Computed example of a mutant assay.
Amino acid sequence: MRKTAALLILLLAALTATGCSALEQEYPSADPAALSQRLRDRAQWAYDGMALPLHKAVKPVRVIPGHSCYAGGLSIEKTLPDVVTFDLSWRVEDIPADVARSTEARLRRKFTSAGWTLTHDGNRRGRNFVTFGFRVQDPATGDQFDLAWNDSTTSLFLSGYTSCAKVPQPAADNPSPKTWTPQTA
């Protein structure tokens, strides 16, 4: 037992001393402007795929950085200041249940037929509630989109997230200066 503990301590010391990335996760470097634009483009693509009836205008939103990317290894609680995920979230209010259900089904088909992987099915019906939704992930980029609707708010929520990426420090702390609202034909 002592030999195993001593061996583990020596291995840990060697990995730490050499800066081995086995202890901390390596994240790819990325251009924050390109990630933001990709989210805006995919949000428009998703909005078009929803084929919603006339509704109140979607309020302009910004792509914002999120600090939920962890170092990994022995420091699983430590976030990395220059590694972020980008998020774009918006909603359409006052969507009836039948419209929400058909919209959810259309968008789910659009994502999965484009090769996205369904990672969560949020369709639930209980005695006092109804929810529709899903989460999908792009296997090529790791980006995710969530769609959610519930009968207590009757709002349709769509959120997109990029994978964690290393970006220049100013971009890690500031939202994109550009706003997005869906373009309608």
Rank of each mutant, 00 (worst) to 15 (best):
R2M: 12
I9C: 07
L10V: 04
L10N: 05
L10S: 01
A13T: 02
A13S: 04
A14V: 08
T16Y: 14
G19H: 00
C20D: 14
Q25E: 11
S29E: 06
A33S: 07
A33W: 02
A34W: 05
L35E: 06
L35P: 00
L35H: 02
S36V: 09
R38E: 14
L39T: 00
R40F: 09
D41V: 06
D41W: 05
A43V: 04
W45P: 08
Y47T: 03
M50I: 11
P53W: 03
H55T: 13
H55M: 10
H55P: 07
K56H: 07
K56M: 12
V58T: 12
V58M: 08
V63T: 05
G66K: 13
H67S: 13
S68C: 08
Y70H: 15
A71I: 02
G73E: 05
L74G: 06
I76T: 11
L80G: 01
D82I: 01
F86P: 00
E93F: 05
A97S: 09
V99H: 00
E104C: 09
E104V: 05
E104T: 12
R108F: 11
F111H: 01
T112G: 04
T112H: 01
S113E: 09
A114V: 00
G115S: 01
T119F: 10
H120Y: 10
H120G: 09
D121Q: 08
D121V: 02
N123K: 04
R124W: 06
G126P: 04
R127T: 13
F129M: 13
T131Q: 14
T131K: 12
G133A: 10
G133I: 04
G133Y: 05
R135S: 13
P139Y: 15
A140D: 15
G142C: 09
Q144A: 10
L147C: 09
A148G: 15
N150A: 14
N150M: 08
D151R: 07
T153K: 08
T154A: 11
L156G: 11
L156N: 11
S159P: 10
S159C: 11
G160L: 09
Y161F: 13
V167S: 12
V167G: 11
V167L: 12
P168W: 09
Q169T: 14
P170I: 04
D173Y: 13
N174T: 09
N174I: 07
N174L: 11
P175D: 08
S176A: 15
K178L: 15
K178P: 07
W180A: 08
Q183A: 06
